[in-house]
């Protein structure tokens, strides 16, 4: 089975973008690819333990995602790690700005990663941004 490198940078805090990022990460990882997800900007707060705020819909599709029985984006990211060995890292700058520590994030999230490492890790594969 071919194994490719897939790097996913997620900065959006809207439902549609988070959902699509989670789909790319989970399906990519379970199909044997080496997936790294980098969470920064408005995306990161949804991965703080106990976060109850739901991601706002950007448009019609986001509202439909909420109404229909679509797998929740956080669940898909967790499955990317559990079933496909994906690595999901928070951006170290975003962690600092939010004033949180690694322990405040969901247990499937890895250690914070700097942009230099992410860019170097992403240099030889597909890069997706949401």
């Amino acid at each position: 089975m071919s194994s490719d490198k897939i790097s996913v940078m997620v900065t959006s805090g809207n439902r549609e973008q988070l959902q699509m990022a989670a789909m790319v990460a989970s399906v990519g990882a379970v199909s044997g690819n080496d997936v790294t997800v980098f969470l920064s900007m408005n995306a990161l707060k949804f991965f703080v333990k106990g976060a109850t705020e739901s991601a706002p819909a950007e448009g019609e599709m986001g509202k439909l995602l909420e109404e229909k029985n679509v797998p929740e984006f956080k669940e898909l990211f967790e499955q990317a790690v559990e079933y496909g060995d994906a690595t999901i890292s928070p951006c170290s700058m975003a962690v600092d700005i939010l004033g949180i520590s690694e322990d405040d994030l969901e247990s499937f999230i890895s250690e914070p990663m700097g942009l230099t490492s992410f860019l170097s890790d992403a240099s030889e594969g597909q890069v997706w941004h949401f």
């Binding site: 789909m23 989970s26 399906v27 379970v30 029985n69 679509v70 797998p71 898909l76 499955q79 079933y83």
Partner: peptide
């Protein structure tokens, strides 16, 4: 049944 992509695939993989 009644879930959307990639729900059925993930359920199967589990």
């Amino acid at each position: 049944k009644n879930t959307f992509c990639p729900g059925p695939l993930m359920e199967l993989i589990g």
